[in-house]
Simulated scan of single mutants.
Amino acid sequence: MDKGKHCILVGIDFGKPSLTAIEQTFNLARLLKIELTLLYVIEENDFLKRFFSQRYGNESELIRSIEMELNALKQEIEGRSGIKVNTVIGKGKPHDVILKKAEELNAVMIFMGTTNSDEKIVGTTTHKVVRTAKCPVITVRAETYHDGCRTILLPLDLTAQTRQKIAWAIEIARLYAANIKIISVLSSTDDETRQNLNIQLKQARNFIELSQISCSAELIEKSPNDANQAQVILRYIDQHPEIDLIVIMTQPEEGVVNYFLDAEAQQIIRSASVPVMSIVPHEFSYPSKWLGE
């Protein structure tokens, strides 16, 4: 694969969530006319390595076994989708390897499977990749989804990085000929906050419609029974089955300590019934850096 080309990078462990994530890449890869790269990471000194090393005798046999499984999966995907697939085996801490390979391969996006658990935080690997990747990360739960993207949900607040999120939503909507639903959650009774959110909703809607994309905007009030804004957003997704993707920022304000992923972003990533595109706000986050080349 040419180093100058873009690809979609998929973290794979052969579990159902990562296999579902692969399924979600097909249309996007076709629309962007780029290849898929499946990445399997062998963790040093982890339990699975010891288990498989005992089963296969040594690390070389383990790697050969993984190569065979990856090759079989590659052939299956290419046969079903017609998309060129590359496979890579890395060694080390999964988040480090994923982030390094994403930069080496000029990944336009990273896809990762995630499970829905009762835990209050997302998995360590997903957490670290989502908060530090230079390209968007799409997390997918182990369920089936609509084939394509009809409507993109775009929650907006009053932070400065809103423009990057809007830019990505527009580009994805263009690719899929999708609609965009903008929502803002009002958590207070402050009239000034309400006014500012309504102004931003109107400006964002007008900007998106100038791009010839159908768009609606809605201000939703958080009820006393809602624990936080994430709960309001998750309920909204469940009430609108036409939504196929949600776009969020994983660090809502500059200066947020980047060792921790915002708790409400974690809740959305862990519990959303649709794929979640997470974007870390920085200069590389604009789609022109990735899709315009």
Rank of each mutant, 00 (worst) to 15 (best):
T124Y: 13
I63K: 05
L261S: 12
S211G: 01
I180V: 01
L31H: 11
R194S: 01
Y40P: 07
D191F: 14
T125G: 08
G79V: 11
R30Q: 09
K91V: 13
I63M: 03
I183G: 01
F284Q: 09
V256L: 09
D262Q: 15
T159W: 13
A263S: 13
F260Y: 14
V256M: 11
H6F: 09
V140W: 01
T37V: 13
N71P: 09
L28Y: 07
V276T: 08
K100W: 03
A217M: 08
S278A: 14
R30M: 03
E293Y: 14
R30P: 04
C149P: 00
D262L: 07
V10G: 00
P275W: 02
S184T: 06
H282G: 09
A29Y: 03
G15Q: 07
S211R: 13
N228K: 00
I180W: 04
E103L: 07
N196A: 13
I110V: 04
T115L: 09
P287G: 00
N27A: 11
R141M: 11
I152D: 01
R205D: 04
T20P: 00
R55M: 12
I213H: 04
A29H: 04
F111W: 02
L19A: 07
K134H: 06
G92V: 00
L261C: 07
A265M: 02
E104K: 05
